[in-house]
Design a protein around this nucleic acid. Structure first.
Lengths: 163, 163
DNA sequence: ATTTTATGTATAACATGTTATATAACTTCC
DNA sequence: GGAAGTTATATAACATGTTATACATAAAAT
């Protein structure tokens, strides 16, 4: 057994640590999505959710809303266009801006997700870390241990069997 | 001003959120490293620290120690070889394994880092989130707000001026 | 009105993570 | 002791983030 340096070093490796936990959480989330038979990536959801909440948004606004850079937003929106979940057209008052809106297919996906998938994911994550408290390093350790002990997808099953 | 969906959605977007905070923290950490004039990437440090702590390790052990996959470890070790910070040779008893050890240059870097850089980074991160407590979502919000208000690099300066 | 500057998006190049798979070396089992 | 399976690392292909920069359009300035 090898020592987990990132965990051992604590605050020194916070960045690496948060990133790797985030990646694992997102991979687990993806599993829940896949098991539900939806063809979308976990990282694409926030874009759809943003438009659903605020109405059509420009690329720049989406980047801000999701907290990534503009080129990243441009790429993800390109994927969602390919998938047919969103539509894009120049803003009438400013030809530079592209307004991105949900297609019917995209709205259907969001509506279905809100009913079926999002609550499941949120509940599983809450099960993982909702009751935690105390210093962040301790909570992160608990989250990592929790994920190793039982992935998110199983937490749904468990939750549904013993609610 | 656009709503931050990832923050708004809470547990639903935990994965994205942790990742993006991790990325920002690591970018800030990199700035501290760069300002100190060291030519190393923040993400490479845990590998050097792991070897420094445990002695020569194989690629697989390093991957475990740092918490990434083996191909990722192979690549980073390739970079550290290029930079001259580590050395790699087949394990005497098992020709498949590659033992990675610190070169003198690598050990010098680690020793210097332990004295000068690592404490500074750890102190800045502790300043950012060391005193936090309570539910994780609240702490994450505080960390994001804190980073937006003052990057890690500035926290050093502030700390050194008003210790 | 035309030139200059600023802004929004797209694209290129790169960084660093992943999964899947090839290859070499070690183990196991008849 | 050789065939078959296992394990360690390398490599390929891909995902998704970044920074730097090009290009089109809008806004400002002379």
């Amino acid at each position: 057994m090898v020592e987990d340096v990132v965990r051992t070093l604590g605050f020194l490796c916070m960045g690496s640590r948060l990133r790797r936990i985030g990646e694992r959480l997102q991979a687990d989330t993806q599993q829940v999505i896949d098991e539900a038979g939806l063809s979308i990536q976990a990282g694409q959801y926030p874009f759809l959710a943003a438009i659903d909440r605020s109405g059509p948004l420009t690329i720049g606004e989406l980047a801000q809303a999701v907290g990534i850079t503009q080129p990243g937003a441009t790429r993800t929106i390109g994927q969602l266009l390919e998938l047919g979940y969103v539509d894009m057209q120049p803003a009438p008052d400013d030809q530079r801006r592209r307004l991105v809106s949900l297609t019917d297919k995209g709205q259907d996906l969001v509506d279905h997700s809100k009913k079926v998938i999002w609550p499941r994911i949120a509940a599983a994550v809450a099960d993982l870390c909702g009751d935690l408290d105390g210093p962040i390093l301790e909570q992160l350790a608990a989250i990592e241990d929790g994920l190793a002990a039982m992935p998110l997808a199983s937490r749904n099953a468990a939750k549904e069997e013993n609610p």
